[in-house]
């Protein structure tokens, strides 16, 4: 529980229950009806099966989850385990690449003179506030056969001239990093800005080299920003739908695309629900780990 909460609230006082109801009530009811209930319905449906005409029917079965693990009716089929693994790898890869790019960028902005700092930061915020769909389909133009980016890549001897660079896993990765980089840089920058540089100076005075200064004097100080940034990128990226849909092909189907296919094309809602529940389980695990790591510190500010 939050320190501030326990200080201000004394549940014994009359009227407190009413006030809690008036203030938190509408939000709690709204999220219970339109979030908790639908997610619960998803969980229930995931244990049903698909009828001949796409309807959902009884009895309760664990078949959808078996199929997800690769044990379908027709023997072992690694399709869905592979999709799951691919999504996790893509999410982790995106988070790692964004961290690798985000660290220098955050330190660069923090080191600027105050009057340039706002500008440099605003330049990161603008893409953050700009439509993800637009920023993603733009890569279709940039990676088209006749674009100068594609021609430059081909001139380096990569790929065949005249071919587009998408759909491909590389294109998906580029789109992911470009779209999620601001999500990591912003919390990271907030940490870098608060660094106590005297620790780094002390470490240098004691003869530590650059790498050691970073590892022992700086890294522990920016860890909160790093973990907030990684969780903000990894979880949504793992279930991304638009980026693999627009920049990837049939070979790069991810968790998000599998859910869409089951709901809109195959009309197998029970199986689609099972896939969606895996993504939900990932998110709950992520939040739980974060809550466990930050236990005793009240509510963290992840935003």
């Amino acid at each position: 529980m939050n320190d501030n909460t326990s200080k201000n609230a004394s549940p014994a006082r009359p009227g407190m229950r009413l006030r809690a109801g008036i203030t938190s009530g509408p939000g709690v009811i709204w999220l219970t009806v339109l979030l908790l209930l639908p997610l619960g319905a998803l969980a229930v449906i995931s244990f049903l099966s698909r009828g001949d005409y796409g309807e959902t029917q009884l009895p309760f079965t664990g078949e959808n989850y078996q199929r997800l693990l690769g044990f379908g009716l027709l023997g072992f089929d690694p399709l869905y385990p592979v999709i799951l693994l691919r999504s996790l790898l893509l999410g982790a890869g995106t988070a790692a690449a964004c961290l690798a790019c985000g660290l220098p960028l955050a330190f660069f902005i923090a080191g600027l003179a105050p009057r340039y700092k706002t500008t440099a930061l605003t330049l990161v915020v603008i893409p953050f506030w700009t439509n993800l769909l637009i920023r993603t389909y733009a890569w279709q133009i940039l990676l088209a056969p006749e674009s100068w980016v594609t021609r430059a890549v081909h001139a380096l001897g990569i790929g065949t001239a005249g071919d587009a660079l998408y759909p491909s896993t590389t294109a998906v990765a580029i789109g992911m990093i470009c779209d999620y980089l601001p999500f990591l840089v912003l919390p990271l920058y907030a940490s870098v800005e608060k660094i106590d540089w005297s620790l780094a100076e002390a470490a240098m005075d004691l003869g530590a080299d650059g790498l050691r200064v970073f590892r022992h004097a700086l890294l522990p100080q920016i860890m909160p920003g790093i973990s907030a940034g990684i969780i903000l990128v990894f979880l949504p990226a793992t279930g991304q739908f638009i980026i693999p849909d627009l920049l990837g092909g049939a070979k790069t189907v991810m968790l998000g695309n599998a859910i869409e296919q089951q709901f809109l094309q195959s009309r197998d809602w029970p199986f689609g629900s099972a896939v969606a529940l895996v993504a939900l389980a990932l998110v709950l695990t992520g939040i739980w780990i974060y809550a466990w790591k930050n236990r005793g510190q009240g509510q963290p500010d992840l935003l």
């Binding site: 979030l35 639908p38 997610l39 998803l42 969780i231 903000l232 979880l235 949504p236 793992t238 279930g239 991304q240 739908f241 968790l255 998000g256 859910i259 869409e260 709901f263 689609g272 629900s273 969606a276 993504a279 939900l280 998110v283 992520g286 939040i287």
Partner: peptide, 9 residues
């Protein structure tokens, strides 16, 4: 943190 698609379905 929930991927949009899960909330959507």
């Amino acid at each position: 943190f929930l991927p949009d698609i899960v909330l959507a379905v």
